[in-house]
């Protein structure tokens, strides 16, 4: 079974089914999807079943045939905070700015533990990327498409759709695009939308981040430091 969730697509293996049946079903599902998932990273969820190294390798080999990476299993979160847009719930991974400064040295601002998803394609209307980490897209994100991730979003192209960076409450997350013209921007629990009147179009790369409890968009300059 493939199951889309807040932190990407998960391969869910039925606890009761035989591993052979599950593997066959997975292969059928992926063949049906063709190249759609190429370049994606899937999570593996075997419920309470303990997979042996060999079983895990077998599944990993199948998804790799279709150009998909298997991410390390992570605990299923019961209480997704996306959709509520309230402050992150207690216990969520969320560093306060002060804590961040004391725990990380100046040069270590980039959270090294965050993985980055690199997509070399355009996201069109109706397509959606959810990722635990940063997302870099070489292409456009068109209106009607959606990118949600826990880290930064960088679009090497036009961002016309919806982008939600720092989706688990990271207010330090940024959204940057060569042409930042989103329908809606979300960073952590902050939301902003495009003005109703057509304003001047951005002339160069811009960066959005949270400042004084508001999402602020500025021209991007290479000297920008978080």
């Amino acid at each position: 079974m493939l199951k889309g969730g807040r932190d990407g697509v998960a391969i869910v293996i039925d606890e009761q089914a035989s591993i052979e049946a599950a593997v066959a079903e997975l292969r059928a599902k992926l063949s049906e999807a063709g190249n759609f998932f190429r370049g994606a990273a899937f999570r593996l969820d075997a419920g309470r079943r303990r997979l042996t190294e060999a079983e895990r390798d077998a599944i990993s080999a199948i998804v790799r045939e279709f150009g998909i990476e298997l991410r390390e299993p992570r605990e299923l979160r019961e209480n997704p905070s996306i959709g509520r847009f309230s402050a992150p719930a207690a216990g969520e991974r969320h560093l306060s700015p002060a804590l961040r400064l004391t725990t990380l040295g100046r040069g270590d601002e980039m959270p090294a533990e965050e993985p980055t998803l690199y997509l070399r394609r355009t996201l069109r209307s109706g397509q959606r990327v959810d990722y635990q980490g940063n997302v870099v897209i070489m292409g456009d994100v068109n209106a009607g498409a959606m990118v949600t991730c826990t880290g930064d979003i960088i679009v090497l192209g036009a961002l016309r759709g919806l982008a939600h960076a720092g989706a688990e409450g990271n207010e330090k997350a940024i959204v940057m695009a060569f042409r930042l013209e989103p329908t809606q921007l979300r960073i952590a629990h902050h939301i902003s939308r495009a003005p109703d009147e057509e304003g001047p179009r951005p002339q160069g790369p811009e960066i959005a981040r949270v400042k004084n409890d508001m999402i602020l968009i500025e021209a991007y300059t290479p000297s920008y430091a978080p």
Binding site: G34, N35, R124, S125, G126, N142, G144
Partner: peptide, 15 residues
Amino acid sequence: VRDADRIIGMLEAHE
């Protein structure tokens, strides 16, 4: 144009 964009995405998914 928005619907065309959606369709192009689906066509790409179907190779």
